[in-house]
Nucleic acid binder design. Structure first.
Lengths: 206, 206
DNA sequence: GTAGGATTGGATCGTCAAGTCCAGTCCGAA
DNA sequence: TTCGGACTGGACTTGACGATCCAATCCTAC
């Protein structure tokens, strides 16, 4: 019984990863409830028992998917955010986010956002993990903005925390609307509005 | 067979309404996939056959729920938005939205937003209805902002459409984050940022 | 009051998902 | 090389859900 903890062998780790990656992909596209364990089994090329060998139940697998997606987003976003030292860099970050959404016509939305919308209310364990993911994300944005305060691009005293939350909310809401409307106009409008507001904190103004 | 079209009798209409209201409530709290037709049957106090007498299948019922929620939101929001003639009124609108979220600790999120997140990708018929709902909502906001342009509170040439989309995205993203974080700080941050940006369009500035 | 459609009750069916079981194979350590 | 635990395959059980069926009742128009 290796259900708890990481598999001890190389092969076991590879199998577990394959399951998580397949589940993440399916859950991203069809939601958690819309993803059956048989579907995961087929997509990952494993048998039923392997899923339950590595995970206690579907909730446990879902938890692993949340962790996986949080890390994937951070891995993707961090490079853009650690170099956030100017308004140009902020615009570039926005362009990357918008472009990613545009490429798929808004389909899918944010991997973390959809999971959160589906699970937060009914599953406290999921909500905690998701809140942690969002927190790490907004923390990364805040650190970027703090860089801009540090190097003088933004006025001292600027509340980087609050602005980071506003940016994250704009991303989430924009992506959600992009999903329904199949265009990125709301995402762009929201990001542009918040960024324009941030520009109001540029050093060299009141 | 009265599956299509409204029931012809008073009693039939009441039964149909009871089903839609019960389904809307359950789907709001547990999602569409998390709401079984037996659960709707019990909550509405009807029998299985009645559900399938008034609706072709669960998708058809879901469609009715989307319509119901769109109308409920519009009915709730319109009074606040038709009187949107000043920045004070805009702040009041924000306060109502934030207060509603705070009252339930963010739980539930936006009735339209959660449905959209769950259904938009896989169900085109739902996406169309949801996009229409969002469109009506942002349209109502835009009309409010247009009033402010008309009465001179906002500069002529202000793009009320874009600002309305930004506000709606801020609401959606803020509510989504409130759901996971159990607080309204992101919602407030996003709305404050967008509203501050709108204030930048106040008449009497460049 | 009565015909006929609208409405209702609830048993029932087919399907599929979650999770279990166990027999077997692989593989590293002694 | 052999022992034991890690890992794998897939049949199987159980239960719930969506949907159907049909008989019974209501109610409105005539």
């Amino acid at each position: 019984m290796t259900s708890q903890g990481a598999p001890s062998t190389q092969k076991g780790r590879a199998t577990r990863d394959r399951i998580v990656v397949a589940a993440a992909e399916l859950m991203y596209r069809h939601g958690v409830a819309g993803t059956s364990t048989p579907a995961v089994r087929d997509a990952a090329g494993v048998s039923s028992s392997q899923i339950y060998h590595y995970f206690a139940d579907k909730d446990d697998l879902t938890k692993a998917v949340i962790t996986h997606q949080s890390q994937a987003i951070l891995a993707h976003q961090t490079p853009l955010l650690v170099t956030l030292d100017s308004f140009d860099a902020l615009d570039s970050w926005r362009d990357v986010v918008v472009e990613a959404a545009r490429r798929q016509n808004g389909a899918g939305g944010c991997p973390l956002g959809s999971l959160s919308s589906e699970l937060s209310d009914d599953h406290p364990w999921a909500r905690d993990a998701l809140a942690a993911g969002f927190s790490a994300w907004s923390g990364a944005i805040r650190d970027g903005l703090a860089t801009m305060v540090g190097n003088g691009a933004l006025r001292p005293g600027t509340d980087a925390d609050e602005l980071a939350l506003a940016l994250l909310a704009a991303v989430q809401g924009g992506l959600l609307l992009a999903q329904a409307q199949h265009n990125t106009s709301a995402l762009e409008a929201a990001l542009n509005a918040v960024i324009a507001h941030i520009r109001g904190h540029a050093a060299g103004r009141a």
